[in-house]
Amino acid sequence: MSTPSRYWREIPQRYRLEANKCNRCELTFFPPRLLCPECKNRKLEKSKLTEKGKVITYTIIRVPPAQFSDQAPYAVGIIELEDGVRLTGQIVDCAFEDIKIGMKVKLEFRKLFEEGHAGILCYGYKFVPHGE
């Protein structure tokens, strides 16, 4: 089991969607990068992603890795946020048959998994349908 440091250092990204961007290339990086892969600019500016987007592809995981075994089956998709940034995340609070490419979703704060019975609880973002 890893020490909590590994979880802890990703908190700004997982809790608050903190990213950074290259103002020269108008690219946003999530997770944040130390340099822009396009222009090698190292002066990247902090930014925060939007919390709404749409599903661009998805799957239903039925054979999960060990720490997710209590949760399967669950849906994982690639979400394109309104600011154009794409990220991978679970799609919850939705019947599998209702998930469609193009479906609008918004972020919710959820527990991703637990490190065994006695380890830390691992939180972060998931996505839920965002109707209307």
């Binding site: 919850v92 959820r110 527990k111 998931k126």
Partner: peptide
């Protein structure tokens, strides 16, 4: 609550 929801979430 769903299994991924608790007091914190």
């Amino acid at each position: 609550p769903s299994p991924d929801q608790d007091t914190i979430t």
